[in-house]
């Protein structure tokens, strides 16, 4: 299991990286933390002409508050996501999700931007970005644009980024009064890809859910907002009846594929169980 030969370019800036990508004529691959790219190279599942290492680009790092929005640089490592106080206070779902991503040593290298750009349907962070209604700042040769998380994840490993574009930062909207959240996943072993996982964020006002966003992962080709379940819960008091209705509504929200080791019906069942538990948890923290 040794990688095929490739060149290595350490990008000095986003512009340099974009230029290098263009020069490689579709044969370049960006390297962030490398924890998905490097094993896929070792497995010889791809053979790029060159890797363009983004880790030395200052513009892609840093965590800061700006006008209530939290900016998380795309090269922020999972371990920082788990430990950074700004993230804990302003993007709590990221803080809760990070310990579920693989194992400690992986979290020391893996980057949030790498995870979002790869868009593995079983990854935690894409669902978190959805539930947080984050916006993703993408740099391309035509400039910088911001894409809502809802519009970002398109399909299995497919995002709204064009080939060569670089995810620069994640912007998380300001925290609202009464905001609560919950995150969990059902995995066979600690750190495994989840059978089902979900991130929930809600705003509780006078015992009602003024707002809620629910995002599932590992249930289909991309992280998925549970719009029907959200609609059932929104503006309602959280009680067993509402939870049951939300669970029932998931059938319309989720479209898991049918696999020998995990039939679609089982994933739907697990999604309902997980949603019930998360909403119950939300109830106690509200």
């Amino acid at each position: 299991m040794k990688s095929p030969a490739f060149d290595y370019i350490r990008a000095r800036s986003v512009a340099h990286a974009l230029e290098a990508y263009r020069d490689l004529d579709g044969e370049g691959v960006y390297l962030a933390g490398g924890h998905s790219v490097v094993p896929s190279l070792a497995l010889r599942l791809q053979a790029p002409a060159a890797l363009i290492d983004l880790s030395g680009i200052d513009a892609l790092t840093g965590i800061s508050l700006d006008d209530g929005w939290l900016r998380i640089g795309s090269m922020t490592r999972h371990a920082e996501i788990a430990s950074d106080p700004l993230i804990r206070d302003h993007a709590r779902l990221f803080h809760l999700a990070a310990p579920h991503v693989a194992h400690p040593a992986i979290r020391n290298r893996g980057t949030v931007g790498g995870s979002l750009s790869l868009a593995d349907p079983a990854s935690e962070f894409p669902a978190v970005a959805l539930a947080l209604r984050a916006e993703l700042e993408v740099a391309g040769r035509d400039g910088i644009r911001r894409v809502k998380a809802d519009d970002f994840f398109l399909d299995i490993y497919e995002t709204a980024m064009e080939p060569g574009e670089i995810l620069q930062a994640i912007f998380v909207p300001p925290v609202r009064t009464g905001e609560v959240c919950a995150f969990d996943e059902l995995a066979r072993r600690r750190g495994d890809y989840a059978m089902v996982g979900a991130a929930v964020q809600a705003v509780v006002e006078a015992g009602r859910l003024a707002d809620i966003s629910i995002a599932f992962f590992s249930v289909g080709n991309k992280p998925t907002r549970a719009g029907a379940a959200e609609a059932v819960l929104r503006e309602n008091a959280m009680n067993d009846t509402a939870i049951a209705a939300a669970q029932a509504a998931l059938d319309a929200d989720l479209d898991p594929s049918d696999e020998p080791q995990m039939p679609a019906s089982v994933r739907r069942h697990l999604a309902r169980v997980l949603l019930g538990r998360l909403l119950g948890h939300l109830g106690t923290t509200a």
Binding site: L186, R188, V266, H269
Partner: peptide
């Protein structure tokens, strides 16, 4: 192995 699927 007694997988979650088989137990369910």
């Amino acid at each position: 192995p007694m997988t979650p699927l088989r137990v369910l």
